[in-house]
């Protein structure tokens, strides 16, 4: 028999199977909500910011394996980063950190990037108001 070609990389499966930072956050500083049920992926991403640094991040996601893994990865990547640095986390970096994604699932990494940007925008608009 030839070797099987798994749909997802080991890293994706590892994050899918043991996702980091799952759950809602009490009093988040920013919430990002992206996706829609028609495409089958919905992400909610929360951030906690202290002195301009993202100190914590959590997520809730309805979606495929790639959607869950990218959510998990982006919440890991953002922790400890300044807001400026966090804004520079792009979909490509998320996908690369996961050892790549199948082409048809690349939109999941865009969704992760958008969820993070949306949470940061939420934080920035709230902090402007204060």
């Amino acid at each position: 028999m030839t070797k099987t070609q798994p749909l997802y990389s080991e890293k994706v499966m590892e994050h899918f199977n043991n996702p980091r930072n799952v759950g809602e956050m009490g009093n988040p500083d920013g919430i990002g909500h992206v996706g829609n049920p028609v495409c089958g992926d919905i992400m909610e991403l929360y951030i906690k910011v202290n002195n301009g640094t993202t100190v914590d991040s959590k997520f809730k996601t309805f979606g495929c394996g790639a959607a869950i893994a990218t959510s998990s990865m982006v919440t890991e990547m953002v922790k400890g980063k300044s807001i400026e640095e966090a804004l520079k986390i792009l979909k490509r970096a998320v996908a690369e950190a996961l050892g790549g994604l199948p082409p048809i699932k690349m939109h999941c990494s865009s969704l992760a990037e958008e969820a993070l940007k949306s949470a940061i925008e939420d934080y920035l608009s709230k902090s402007k108001g204060e």
Binding site: Y8, M13, F16, N17, G40, D41, F62, G63, C64, G65, A67, I68
Partner: peptide, 14 residues
């Protein structure tokens, strides 16, 4: 309800 099919399939595959 409230969960997506592929994520169930992958978990069952594990």
């Amino acid at each position: 309800n409230y969960v997506e099919g592929e994520s169930m399939v992958l978990n069952l595959d594990l």
